[in-house]
């Protein structure tokens, strides 16, 4: 079953509701067992990097997640801060990230002349990369973002989607069975439903 990791950070309820709406059962867990026998894993997250990473460590679920992802090849989708946690580190804090994706998170610093505001809160069109499995080619992909920090992938092959802030921002990542999105699919109407459906159907 689709399993949402609850480590005390983020909004598992909204994700469960959207999965139910599009016809999939999903459950929330803070235990190792359901993580290991999940069909798909979701790692949500909101708030500050260090606080979330610390909570995830305290939950003692990281070894189970690593076993699920690397040994059992269960697909995992990090959402919002959950995507940033997949990387090595973030300028927002000092705690090390999970390091599953070769990426670092940095503060968004638009050119003042651009008049762009940080945090960026709002909707943006996402440009998929040719190999991206989460997005359909030729279909409008519009998602809700709310963030002040952006992930930067070291290996461009890991980038699944970008959106244009003052420069293209890596907002979706894909590395083997590990996926991440900076935006909130569960708050992005039918665009988000399509993405979650793709994650369930095409991520393996």
């Amino acid at each position: 079953m689709i399993t949402i990791v609850n480590y005390g950070v983020g909004n598992p309820g909204a994700l469960v509701n959207m999965f139910e709406f599009i016809g999939y059962d999903a459950r929330i867990t803070d235990q190792a067992e359901p993580i290991l026998d999940a069909s798909h894993l979701i790692l949500p997250g909101v708030g500050a990097f260090d606080a979330a990473m610390q909570r995830l460590k305290n939950s003692r679920l990281i070894p189970s997640l690593e076993k699920a992802i690397f040994d059992r090849k269960i697909p995992l989708l990090g959402v919002c801060l959950g995507m940033q946690l997949l990387g090595r580190r973030s300028e927002e804090g000092v705690t090390e990230g999970l390091g599953w994706i070769a990426a670092d998170t940095v503060r968004m610093r638009p050119d003042p002349a651009s008049r762009l505001k940080v945090p960026f809160m709002g909707w943006a069109y996402v440009q998929r990369t040719p190999a991206a499995r989460l997005f359909d080619a030729g279909v409008e992909s519009r998602f809700y973002f709310t963030h002040s920090y952006q992930m930067r992938c070291e290996d461009q092959a890991d980038v699944a989607g970008t959106y244009k802030f003052d420069e293209p921002v890596d907002c979706a990542v894909q590395h083997n069975n590990i996926y991440g999105v900076q935006f909130h699919p569960e708050k992005s109407h039918r665009y988000g439903m399509r993405l979650l459906r793709n994650f369930v159907e095409k991520s393996r």
């Binding site: 909004n11 909204a14 992005s188």
Partner: peptide, 12 residues
């Protein structure tokens, strides 16, 4: 608020 949020497929 949980009931409200459950109904929202948009940011709340």
């Amino acid at each position: 608020i949980s009931e409200l949020a459950s109904e929202c497929f948009m940011p709340l």
